[in-house]
């Protein structure tokens, strides 16, 4: 079966600075794929290139169609939910309004209602905080809300950019527990960029390591946990 997402020889630049030299990767349906690498390796740019925030060359095939030139608006309509760096919440909208924005491209009202309820089941605190501005939430709650909002879109592919950034270890664990659960129970496909290689390699099936805009290592997460270079550089033992 063809993968849900396939990048082949993707290049991207910010002005004269080349951020991605040559990135090829695939994400199969139902997989959790991790993207690891040091700061500036191009992890965030890879996600931004996929969701259409950054122009790129090369081949990007998503759900069977060529989306190299697709806009973020179009990618959202194709079922891509991208939780960006910094979470991309609307600080001055309420928690509930943020959640409703997740369903913006959907037209099936009944389905949206069911998915709002489903999001609340995963994150029960949302219900009592629903009238609060998103800006008043703690960092962990904001990240949870961003994930919950992405779920309300009922995405084919969920992309998370450094979900653990600035979160306490317990909160990070909780977040990845939910991601794992969604994948196991609902077959949600996830591409996650993460600094915390330890947790990323525990939750994911496969992983890619980016170095200076190229894929340096790839393999199953179990293999990468044993890979010497990966261990030394990203796992610290």
């Amino acid at each position: 079966m063809a993968p849900l997402l396939e990048l082949r020889g993707v290049q991207a630049r910010y002005g004269p600075i080349v951020a991605l030299h040559d990135v090829s990767l695939t994400v199969g349906e139902g997989e959790v794929v991790a993207l690891l690498g040091a700061n500036g390796a191009g992890k965030t740019t890879t996600l931004r290139a996929i969701s259409g925030l950054v122009a790129k060359t090369g081949e990007v095939v998503y759900a069977g169609s060529d989306v190299r030139r697709a806009s973020p608006e179009r990618m959202a309509r194709l079922g891509l939910a991208h939780v960006p760096e910094g979470r991309g919440l609307f600080p001055e909208l309420t928690v509930w309004e943020n959640l409703r924005m997740g369903a913006y491209v959907r037209r099936d009202r009944g389905g949206v209602k069911a998915d709002l309820e489903r999001a609340v089941q995963h994150f029960p605190w949302i219900l009592e905080r629903r009238h609060q501005h998103a800006a008043t939430l703690s960092g962990g709650e904001q990240q949870m809300l961003a994930v919950a909002r992405a779920l309300v879109a009922r995405p084919k592919l969920l992309m998370l950019d450094e979900p653990s950034l600035g979160l306490a270890p317990l909160v990070t664990q909780e977040l990845f527990r939910v991601v794992h659960e969604l994948n196991e129970q609902e077959g949600l496909t996830v591409l996650v960029v993460e600094q915390n290689a330890q947790i990323a390699l525990t939750v994911s099936h496969r992983a890619y390591v980016l170095e200076v805009g190229r894929v340096a290592v790839e393999g199953s997460s179990a293999e990468l946990r044993e890979h010497e270079g990966v261990r030394r550089s990203y796992l610290g033992y």
Binding site: P84, L89, P91, L93, M101, Y104
Partner: peptide
């Protein structure tokens, strides 16, 4: 309304709104 909400969202965070599919 949904459009009213989207207009407020677009004013607050245009990039995040695009990722939600807002034109």
């Amino acid at each position: 309304t949904k459009m009213g909400l989207a207009m407020r969202a677009a004013a607050i965070a245009p990039v995040a709104s695009r990722l939600m599919g807002v034109r």
